[in-house]
Amino acid sequence: MQVNAKRENNILYIRLCGELDEHSAAQARHSADTLAESSALVERAVFDLGEVSFMDSTGIGFLIGRYKKFRRLGVPVYITNTPPTTDKILMMSGIYSLIPKI
């Protein structure tokens, strides 16, 4: 799993590419948290899931964990570009009430 970031108009876009499962989550968590810590003064963080080729329930835990991290920094979090298979899991978990889809 690759975690890339770009900053545009005070919005931090975090793009996940590849498979997000229990094995890849630790590294992805570390990368995303490093980005969070260096995200001073961003207005919001947006997780772009467009390139996620596989995700299981580990992804739910991953996203809620990052949501908590950003919330401590006062940064609201959003999700965008969810592929249908990933959407099915996220929808089931009710995560969109915490992290809205844009």
Binding site: A25, R29, D56, S57, T58, I60, G61, F62, I64, G65, I89, M92, S93
Partner: peptide, 14 residues
Amino acid sequence: DDERSGMGFTIMQT
């Protein structure tokens, strides 16, 4: 504490 969602069995069922 491990960021586990507790949704594994629910996903299998669904």
